[in-house]
């Protein structure tokens, strides 16, 4: 160790090139991923995946005539269900609504959580755009949403047959996502 041979010194001089090259490859992969959607610096996975949803019980949305639900209603349904957090003031929720209606028509149980909303606004939203929800709970203070780790509305979760969270999507469900979603909900 007392002296460095010339070749060892040479290796050291190549270090900047090697580091820059590796970083460049990494950035290249990131840019490729950004373009095809596989790398998304904002797509944060839910901490709930593979776990049971948290314990909660929601009141019903006043005057909506839909049964409310609690954590127990997600278990033992015999089939996967979709839990959707939404609000009438949320613009992307309007974009996503036709997809929820389609799932509802196909017989998928869609459970809605009405997030920080006024009951009257929620009711008129459902009257105007149609009601896709088999059950609907009101989360006026937004506390249940925090229990789930919700970022904002709209946000959707697929609960599997075993009662565990299989999938989460933060943002509106788009038409392109439907085939994958149908497969998850089958």
């Amino acid at each position: 160790m007392s002296t460095m041979s010339p070749s060892r010194r040479r290796v050291l001089l190549y270090a900047p090139l090697a580091v820059a090259g590796a970083a460049g490859l990494g950035f290249w992969a990131m840019l490729r991923g950004l373009q095809d959607g596989s790398f998304n610096p904002r797509g944060v996975p839910s901490a709930l995946i593979g776990r049971a949803p948290p314990d909660f019980a929601l009141p019903e949305v006043e005057g909506a005539n839909l049964p409310a639900f609690a954590a127990g209603d997600l278990r033992g349904t015999g089939r996967p269900v979709l839990v959707n957090f939404w609000a009438s003031w949320c613009v992307p929720c309007i974009i996503e609504h036709p997809q929820l209606m389609a799932l509802h028509r196909e017989g998928v149980p869609v459970l809605g959580v009405n997030y920080k909303d006024r009951p009257a606004d929620a009711r008129s939203f459902l009257q105007r755009h149609g009601n896709p929800f088999a059950r609907l709970g009101a989360d006026q203070p937004g506390r249940v949403a925090i229990e789930w780790g919700v970022y904002g509305v709209p946000e959707s979760y697929v609960i599997g047959r075993d009662g565990l969270v299989k999938w989460r999507w933060a943002g509106p469900i788009t038409a392109e996502m439907m085939p994958e979603l149908r497969r998850l909900l089958a």
Binding site: N40, R42, C90, P92, K116, G152, V153, G171
Partner: peptide, 16 residues
């Protein structure tokens, strides 16, 4: 990406 940012901007904007 742009669309996603736009949506996020909307999310951030509400409820104001």
């Amino acid at each position: 990406m742009t669309r996603l940012l736009l949506l996020l901007a909307l999310l951030l904007a509400a409820p104001a």
